[in-house]
Amino acid sequence: MFSTPAFADAAVAAQQPSIIESFLPLILIVVIFWFLVLRPQSKRMKEHREMVANVKRGDTVVTAGGLIGKVVRVKDDNELEVEISEGVKVRVVKSTLTEVRAKGEPAKTEE
């Protein structure tokens, strides 16, 4: 096809993309993944940490298991005592809270 090897080398070199062109799709995928997945997830985690840190006595809380109760006592940095019924108190790990309602805040209604 080519008469000399020099022409063959020039044809192959012209077809290969540069290193930037070959990594550009990978870089774009990482940037899109960061904006669509990692950034919103880290924002949600930060909001959850703040919510759990600000739990105080008298707040109504909802746990991941579905229990709804009133905080009777904040035992330490990791544990709460929650009254789920009159005279029934349970110990709850703070990280399992999914929602904290203030004292007078009504329940959210879905439309």
Rank of each mutant, 00 (worst) to 15 (best):
Arg101Trp: 05
Arg39Lys: 13
Asn54Lys: 13
Lys75Phe: 04
Val52Lys: 00
Leu24Met: 13
Pro25Ala: 09
Ile68Ala: 07
Ala64Ser: 14
Gln41Phe: 10
Leu67Asn: 11
Glu21Gln: 15
Val12Glu: 12
Ala11Val: 11
Val90Gln: 05
Phe23Thr: 13
Gly65Met: 06
Lys75Ser: 11
Pro25Glu: 10
Ala107Asn: 06
Gly66Pro: 10
Glu81Phe: 03
Val88Glu: 15
Ala8Phe: 06
Ser18Ile: 02
Val93Leu: 10
Pro40Lys: 04
Pro25Phe: 09
Arg57Ile: 14
Ser42Asn: 12
Ile84Leu: 11
Gly69Cys: 05
Leu67Val: 07
Met45Cys: 03
Glu21Lys: 11
Lys108Asp: 09
Arg101Ala: 03
Glu83Thr: 04
Ala13Trp: 05
Ser18Asn: 13
Met1Leu: 08
Arg91Asp: 09
Ile19Gly: 04
Ile19Ala: 15
Asn78Thr: 11
Ile29Phe: 12
Thr109Lys: 15
Ile84Ser: 03
Leu28Cys: 10
Val12Met: 09
Asn54Pro: 02
Ala64Val: 07
Glu111His: 09
Ala13Gln: 12
Thr109His: 12
Asn54Ser: 13
Phe23Tyr: 13
Glu47Asp: 10
Glu21Leu: 03
Arg101Asp: 02
Arg44Thr: 04
Ile84Glu: 02
Val74Lys: 01
Lys56Asp: 08
Lys43Cys: 04
Leu24Arg: 15
Phe33Leu: 11
Gly58Pro: 02
Phe7Leu: 09
Glu110Asp: 12
Lys94Ile: 05
Thr96Ala: 04
Gly87Met: 09
Glu21Gly: 15
Glu99Gln: 07
Lys46Pro: 00
Thr109Ala: 12
Glu111Ile: 12
Lys43Tyr: 05
Val71Tyr: 00
Ile68Phe: 06
Val74Asn: 01
Pro17Thr: 08
Asp9Ser: 06
Arg57Asn: 05
Val82Gln: 00
Phe2Ala: 07
Gly104His: 07
Thr96Lys: 02
Ala11Asp: 12
Glu79Ala: 09
Lys89Thr: 13
Ser22Ile: 13
Gly69Phe: 00
Asp76Ala: 07
Val82Phe: 00
Glu47Tyr: 03
Ala14Tyr: 09
Ile32Phe: 14
Pro5Lys: 05
Ala10Glu: 13
Val92Ala: 03
Gly69Asn: 02
Val12Gln: 08
Ala102Asn: 07
Leu97Lys: 00
Lys103Tyr: 05
Gly69Pro: 01
Ile27Val: 15
Lys56Glu: 10
Gly58Ser: 08
Val31Leu: 15
Val90Asp: 01
Lys103Ile: 11
Ser95Val: 09
Val100Ser: 03
Phe35Tyr: 10
Thr63Leu: 04
Ser18Met: 05
Val55Trp: 01
Glu111Ala: 15
Arg49Phe: 03
Lys70Gln: 11
Ile84Thr: 14
Phe33Ala: 12
Val12Cys: 08
Glu110Ser: 08
Ile68Gly: 01
Ile29Lys: 07
Pro5Gly: 06
Asp59Ala: 08
Ser42Lys: 11
Met51Ala: 01
Thr60Phe: 03
Leu24Pro: 02
Phe35Pro: 01
Thr96Arg: 01
Ser3Ala: 06
Met45Pro: 00
Val88Tyr: 13
Glu47Cys: 04
Thr96Leu: 02
Ile84Met: 05
Glu99His: 05
Arg91Ser: 13
Ala10Ile: 07
Gly104Thr: 04
Pro40Trp: 05
